[in-house]
Design a protein around this nucleic acid. Sequence first.
DNA 1: ACCTGAACACCGTTCAAGT
DNA 2: ACCTGAACACCGTTCAAGT
Lengths: 231, 231
Amino acid sequence: MTDVTPTRADPPRRGRPPKAQAQLSRAAIRDAALQVIDDEGSGGLTMRSVSRVLGVDAKSLYHHVAGKDDLLDAVAEHVLEQLRIPAPTGSIEADLRALAHEFRRVTLAHPEAATLVLTRQLSSSGGLAPVEALLTVLHSAGATPEDAVHLLRTLLATLIGTLLREVSAGPLFGTSDPDEIARRRHTLENSGLPQVASAAPHLARYDRDREFDYTLDLIIDLVNARLGPRK
Amino acid sequence: MTDVTPTRADPPRRGRPPKAQAQLSRAAIRDAALQVIDDEGSGGLTMRSVSRVLGVDAKSLYHHVAGKDDLLDAVAEHVLEQLRIPAPTGSIEADLRALAHEFRRVTLAHPEAATLVLTRQLSSSGGLAPVEALLTVLHSAGATPEDAVHLLRTLLATLIGTLLREVSAGPLFGTSDPDEIARRRHTLENSGLPQVASAAPHLARYDRDREFDYTLDLIIDLVNARLGPRK
DNA sequence: ACCTGAACACCGTTCAAGT
DNA sequence: ACCTGAACACCGTTCAAGT
């Protein structure tokens, strides 16, 4: 907020007025885009809103990104690249768990960008590293390459479906707010659908951490069931 | 396409010229919107493109839908309402399988609308009927209401994740086109990632029907493993 | 009750022109 | 090499006015 007194001599400033933005670049644009999404939601992301953050004309962005679609790809890729593969522990179960939690951490770090990241095809090499990590764990669990790929796809589908639910928070899937739980429970109990009514207390409540771990337990059991017998 | 000779007298037509659209209604607007999505993709859906189909001014739509968002909800809801709950067979496994395939049939009937349907929270009572059906199967399999809800959530997450993959067709997830398989296989083999490289033939290929059934097998095993022991 | 003209405040993107 | 003025062909939505 306040000016900083430099401890060293500044580089010569010439006549150039102190622009808001020193140098436009693909990375700077991508970071600005992520900031807009964090602040205003993905609906607020426009070429113009990004350019406003950078103090630049919207059309200037086209020198560094091919268009809005390319920009979205860059953001999704960058978010996913924050994923740090956990060091293998030797326990297949612990490794899968750590990888899943890391995937969750990264995607939920920017909740407003999560749908983008989870929905957009993980095209580049950024999306390949986690795949390699997952395949490595499944391989060391004794899976053939073919089984490993099938399991990988099922595991990812479940993770993506679960994380999408966490960020979209549909009314069908419960909440954490006590008042809202009571309201929804009441609605569900009066739905006229017997199973929905008797499960209403559980349908109305959603604890994100617990629910994620429950699903994680299930799919780890699933991997064990497939791969355990052949060891 | 051709005029039909009425067998009964038409209602008096007065001076009203034969407009393209007899009567505007929420249902007609929703159907037109789905048609636009089918024809041009969800990106082509605008209030103006919908109104064009109906031969009407875009602003007229606002007398029947609250706005674009409301219209999207109406479309998603309508697609999901095509789901016909299969009659229970007595076999838990067969019932789950039939329900999953019906869910897939309905969402993939309009591929361009699928992301909308799968992503948008199934808010209204239209989304509640399949939930009731799933809970019924899980209940008859001996699940407590609490377990049934957890299993329901995991099953839906996996189905949604799998179906989203089918329609988005990310390059990381293989294809059915032989030439493209060869190309991707080559890329993956040269990725420098050992597990990705050795699984390349399987990563490059994606047979949608087989893959769906494989995942379905897995999650049915999962339900059996959870619920079987307690019977 | 239903539809629309005029209007507002936006979009993404191109292209020729400037430095 | 990078940026922008002018411009194009769009958006969703409001509101007062018409029938």
